[in-house]
Amino acid sequence: MKKMGLIAATAAMTVGLSVNASAADTLAAVKERGFVQCGVTTGVPGYSNPDDKGNWKGMDVDVCRGIAAATLGDASKVKYIPLNAKERFTALQSGEIDVLSRVTTWTLTRDSSLGLNFAGVTYYDGQGFLINKNLGVKSALELDGASMCIQSGTTTELNAADYFRENKMQFEPVVFDTADQTVKGFEAGRCDVLTSDQSQLYALRIKLSNPNSAMILPEIISKEPLGPVVRQGDDAWFNVVKWSLFAMINAEELGLTSKNIDGKKNSKNPNIARFVGAEGIKGTGLGLADNWAYNIVKQVGNYGEAFDRNLGMNSPLKIERGLNALWNKGGLQYAPPIR
């Protein structure tokens, strides 16, 4: 059935591409429509997953909410479109979504040949392996001959092949369409190993009926910078998405949180004054309201808050900040200044 979606999207894309050449103005379209269409996963806890009331929650979801807060002044004005790995780029190219915020790795091929642009990095990740504890394996180098459950249409598929080839090992790839099926295949014992971006392994592990039966191997075999993606050729929208993410990171650096930002509206600190839109260029360049960055932090929170809530210590995943700490705290998260 997924295939029908893909074919339909391709058909839509062919039709769309054959009539309209002008680069669409996504920002204007979003403002007119009144909500942002955001492509997310079909369900990876911590990144994008509907809670028991059907509200989407997660790090990637918070990026979408930040964009909605910046453009529309209301973080709840988002329509989430769940996509599996195979469908995601076609959905973006065909205009079905405005932004793809779905654990998507920034690679040369994707950036240069799909007509897409990556707007930054929400999470620095790397590929890892989840295995059944009772196999007694301690390192990925002991995996020669193993079967691996992999999700189709991911960088994971390629990295696994590279890694095993490089280490002269063999493996049997069992490739599924969605995260759910991949997990089920692993649970049913079809594979010895489930491989994916390491943070998603933590997330998928809590989906297992017995999470303690599985463990994550220490090796990380690739670089997976995950970030939001937009269509190439619409620079205004590209800027909006890019700076929405930068605002969240800058807010953490400036110590602005959803709780304290109201009290800092009249701050004498020039960086904060510019941030909340009291001074400086405000929203003019981006075509947004002057308080666009304030809205993001007030309604969604800063990068650190979003991280802790979804992936970090206040979440079931308990992932360390690691590479995703701010640059001045030993990590890689660094955003250009708002001024």
Partner: peptide
């Protein structure tokens, strides 16, 4: 064919059409 070619190959190359 759909899984391998219209699935993985399509996605890795992005050449849907």
């Amino acid at each position: 064919l759909v899984s391998v070619f219209a699935g993985t190959t399509l996605n890795q190359t992005g050449q849907a059409i």
